[in-house]
């Protein structure tokens, strides 16, 4: 028991001496540590697209938006070329029936009989 106490005293004494050890980093160590402290490089930002077509595409909202535009355009052209019956009824109701009006009298335009008579 006494021996254990002695051993503990010795150990505590050595612990205390170890805690008193000072370690001042040398200039060389400071330099080595700081040399390794390279700030992380920021993420590379890709350059903006340069071609006019690419910029126009981006301006319109990319391929998804452009495909919608193209579809709408073709649909509009097709409806104009071959309108469905329901559309025709609707336009007729809205704009009225097509009427041809002539401002000339068909009979009198080229008639010269009266002049020659006089």
């Amino acid at each position: 028991m006494m021996m254990t106490d002695h051993n503990d005293d010795m150990l505590e004494d050595i612990f205390a001496q170890a805690r008193a050890v000072a370690s001042t980093p040398s200039d060389d160590l400071m330099a080595r540590v700081l040399a390794g402290a390279v700030p992380p490089t920021p993420p590379v930002i890709s350059a903006p697209p340069t071609s006019v077509g690419k910029r126009l595409l981006d301006m319109l909202g990319g391929w998804p938006a452009v495909s919608g535009l193209v579809t709408a355009t073709f649909a509009g052209v097709w409806i104009g070329v071959a309108p469905p019956a329901s559309i025709q009824d609707y336009t007729a109701a809205y704009f009225g029936d097509e009427v041809s009006v002539s401002i000339f009298n068909d009979d009198a335009v080229f008639a010269t009989g009266d002049l020659t008579d006089g």
């Binding site: 170890a18 805690r19 050890v21 000072a22 370690s23 001042t24 980093p25 160590l29 400071m30 540590v33 700081l34 402290a37």
Partner: peptide, 15 residues
């Protein structure tokens, strides 16, 4: 950070 922490780290390793 180096000035603040390195002495402590070095002391721990030295002990």
């Amino acid at each position: 950070l180096t000035v603040r922490l390195l002495p402590r780290v070095l002391a721990q390793a030295t002990r």
